[in-house]
Write a protein that binds this DNA or RNA. Structure first.
Ligand SMILES: [Zn+2]
Ligand SMILES: [Zn+2]
Ligand SMILES: [Zn+2]
Ligand SMILES: [Zn+2]
Lengths: 127, 127
DNA sequence: ATTAAATTGTTATAATATAACACTATGTAA
DNA sequence: TTACATAGTGTTATATTATAACAATTTAAT
């Protein structure tokens, strides 16, 4: 696994330190002092970081979180829990869940190369 | 289940007839001849239709499809297969899958009120 | 040194979605 | 039937999310 480029490292560090998912333009505001001035610079770094599994996109929120599954071997098999009140997002790492979904075949016998699952509910604090 | 309003009905009929997911502004273009002129009119109808389970949003595509699970009792438990080449989207209705996910509990024993699952791969035609 | 691939910088623009306000229709209850 | 609440509509403006197009630079192998 090669090193990250300058922009990729700056943006990954920011997301990695964030306790919550970050949105692209929030990232932009936070890295402008480091010389990253344009949305495209952010989106390019995000695209790459997603591709190599260092971060994941929370599709329902248009936001990004760092992967904490030991630098995700499973960026093609992602599952998250999302609190609908405080918006806390946690990556789920359940062997049985990923096994079930990775092996899932639909009625036509189609097997999939990738999945993304988002669970919604209330977190401990919000219950 | 109450009837749909005028705009809701127009927009639902359009999505329901479409063989593929429709995007909001594509919907807008298609209903302008029927007097729906502004994005907000479309988004409001979409919001309501999603809420009552007549349509679903495909989050990874920002697009909408009609529910064909006999007017989805399961709008809070959705699963789709998405072809990464032709972008065909099919709603998966698998009793075992929905049972597994509805009963899924994470490490903290948290149970969820809702989920959305998107599988990616190649459809029959595209393999 | 040469070259290909990846990354960066920049300006402009496209695509997706919501805020705010005024008005109209519909259903329910005094 | 009047009063009231709720849902839906129409409209303008604006916010948010994301990509196109082009030129330059860096990186890592030959
Ligand atoms: Zn991960
Ligand atoms: Zn919470
Ligand atoms: Zn459905
Ligand atoms: Zn296909």
């Amino acid at each position: 696994m090669q090193n990250l480029s300058k922009n990729q490292q700056i943006i990954f560090d920011l997301i990695d330190k964030s306790p919550e998912p970050m949105k692209a333009y929030s990232i932009l505001h936070n890295v402008q002092k480091k010389g990253i001035k344009a949305p495209l610079q952010v989106y390019r770094a995000l695209d790459k970081l997603v591709e190599i599994g260092k971060i994941h996109k929370i599709e329902s929120r248009n936001a990004f979180i760092a992967c904490h599954n030991s630098s995700c071997q499973v960026s093609k098999a992602t599952a998250f829990s999302i609190c609908e009140i405080c918006e806390k997002v946690t990556e789920i790492s359940s062997a049985s869940l990923s096994k079930y979904l990775t092996n899932f075949k639909d009625k036509d016998g189609m097997k999939y190369s990738k999945y993304n699952l988002e669970f919604f509910g209330l977190c401990k604090k919000c219950r």
